[in-house]
Write a protein that binds this DNA or RNA. Structure first.
Lengths: 184, 184
DNA sequence: TAATTCATGTAAATCGTTACATGATTAT
DNA sequence: ATAATCATGTAACGATTTACATGAATTA
């Protein structure tokens, strides 16, 4: 039933399964951690997709508030669809510009490659430190309800930045060693 | 000039900057590490994109071989475009189903969430071990030329798997602690 | 009252995937 | 001979982005 480009629908089902929200609030979620590490989407794809999910009975409008806002929640069918997608392994599909740049570093001449690596090492350090600072004030257990989401995500981000930072430093060392060995 | 969904063109420029190749060989590169961690693409998008890059003078055909195969190489303009893309920071765009699943774990009930996490912990261990085994036979310096590419990529993959594995084990512990604290 | 934020939408263009299609060369 | 691999392409459909558009409620 599902073609494979359709993860937006599952992202929406997942967010709504955590907590009912409006299209506007969903849009904000995508511009936070979710969009940063996992899946990005703008309101122009979110609103039509909510309509399709509602047509298929996977979400429903549970509340209408000020300024025409509509709160959506997952239906039992929607939760079943989400659960199936989460538990069924599928061949992973990836599209990450940042990682693409890392892979293409060896296509540049060494000086340019080093410049790119140094920038990566720097921003991963800055961003990682910021996330770590945020997590210090957080509780030591996964919060129940909606906040558990951000908790898992933040820790993922920290470890992600640390890994990329370590890799960049490793690559810089390797590249510098090669530059020393074969001088231009 | 460039709209932002256009990283395929830069992936192609990068691969061709490392080494001239045919569309068929480029397609194979995308089904290896590149497609696994950074950017996936099939031959049906690669061939038309090569045509467009050639029209714009960023790549050129340098050889035609058996079975109608055409070898492409980057032109100086193409290298300039690649360099600019590599060195100019842009807001990152991410789309990764695997990571999306990780983020949505707290949307499932704890038993399902644990099942997903355990699968993640397992496959990251298996895949990481396999890559590490491959890297043991590799030289201790970045190989010059085309092989440098795979070297950087493999090390990236190893660190990536380790990071996700560590995160999954951390999350499993946290979830189990919560399950103990608030029994159903 | 002016600016900002909240809140939703449509249309055109671009991009990507799936399905379909063809034929040459090499290995068994 | 047959199967597998090499090598390229097109067309239809689906997904995504960019640009355009509107208006209500809140804050300064």
């Amino acid at each position: 039933m599902y073609a494979s480009g359709m993860s937006l629908s599952h992202a929406l089902l997942g967010l709504l399964a955590v907590e009912p929200r409006s299209g506007y609030e969903l849009t904000k979620a995508f511009s936070a951690e979710l969009g940063r590490y996992a899946w990005q989407a703008g309101h122009t794809s979110i609103y039509p997709e909510l309509g399709k999910l509602a047509e298929r009975g996977l979400v429903e409008i549970t509340d209408e508030g000020a300024r025409g806002s509509r709160t959506y929640a997952v239906t039992p069918d929607g939760y079943a669809e989400l659960r199936d997608w989460m538990l069924t392994p599928r061949p992973p599909k990836v599209r990450n510009e940042q990682v693409l740049r890392m892979f293409l570093i060896s296509a540049l001449d060494p000086a340019d490659g080093l410049a790119v690596l140094r920038r990566i090492a720097e921003y991963t350090e800055v961003e990682g430190a910021e996330l770590r600072r945020l997590m210090q004030d957080a509780p030591s257990e996964i919060p129940a309800g909606p906040d558990g989401f951000g908790y898992l995500a933040a820790e993922y981000g920290i470890r992600q930045y640390e890994a990329v930072h370590g890799w960049a430093r490793w690559a810089i060392e390797k590249l510098e060693a090669r530059a020393d060995a074969e001088p231009a």
